[in-house]
């Protein structure tokens, strides 16, 4: 589904992403882990075409992102780190707007989102101004908006930051359903417990890959009990080396 080759992005002298090679298959939940500034968001932004790589290449669905940007964009549903729906629009109007920019017919858009709206308990709030929705519901609405065109690839940049634990569990339930339905899900997070839900994770540090694999395998390899310990061990280890 996604393949990157020596993907690198520099901002001046600062190397945000350093020669990253990834291969992500269909139906996989792939987690990006790392501290702030490790390069997660920069990688994600390059994958969905928001940033140009300084060097290296990206293929999504065997399409070269640099050359066939528009086709690639159609197949991606993206939820940015920052809440970015229109607060002065009603929930419903936000949905219809995103259906519009993806040129998805209204009926089809409702078909794509109605089950999810019901599951999220958003159906009753569709006529509310987005600004009036509680934070958790705003996040859910963002996710629904990202899925309005039924994309095969869903990219979520820290979707659960600022959301209470109960809502986070529900969110992950939906992510699992999406993968089960055959969608590929890329998700970045700094909650290590969430990493356990991923099929595979990459731990990034200073733009580089420091560990990559299924959580269970990684825990065995590094002889740790949980992802939190794993993270401290691999990411902390690099820090020690740098010193």
């Amino acid at each position: 589904m996604i393949k990157t080759e020596e993907l690198t992005r520099k901002f001046g002298d600062f190397i945000a992403v350093d020669h990253l090679n990834l291969q992500i298959v269909r139906g996989e939940i792939f987690g990006f882990l790392g501290a702030n500034g490790a390069g997660k968001t920069t990688t994600i932004r390059m994958l969905c075409g928001l940033l140009m790589p300084s060097s290296g290449r990206i293929w999504v669905n065997n399409l070269d992102v640099a050359k066939e940007g528009e086709k690639v964009k159609k197949s991606i549903g993206y939820m940015s780190q920052r809440f970015s729906l229109y607060q002065d629009l009603k929930a419903k109007e936000n949905l219809e707007f995103y259906a519009g920019v993806y040129a998805t017919p209204r009926a089809e858009a409702w078909e794509n989102t109605l089950p999810l709206l019901e599951q999220f308990g958003l159906k009753e709030s569709l006529n509310m101004r987005t600004a009036e929705l509680p934070m958790g519901y705003k996040q859910r609405l963002s996710l629904v908006c990202a899925l309005v065109h039924n994309p095969p690839l869903v990219i979520l940049d820290e979707p659960t930051s600022g959301v209470d634990p109960q809502a986070r569990r529900e969110f992950w339930q939906v992510i699992n359903q999406l993968a089960f339905a055959g969608k590929t899900v890329l998700v970045s997070t700094h909650f290590m417990d969430e990493a356990e839900y991923c099929h595979r994770v990459i731990i990034m540090q200073a733009g580089k890959e420091v560990a990559l694999g299924p959580p269970r395998e990684l825990k065995q390899r590094f002889e740790v009990q949980n992802m939190q310990e794993l993270f401290m061990k691999v990411a902390g280890g690099i820090n020690a080396k740098l010193k």
Binding site: K71, K73, K74, S80, S84, V101
Partner: peptide, 14 residues
């Protein structure tokens, strides 16, 4: 400024 442009730019609009 609000970050909504980012959400528009990931869509296939020209």
């Amino acid at each position: 400024e609000m970050g909504t442009m980012e959400q528009i730019l990931v869509s296939p609009v020209s």
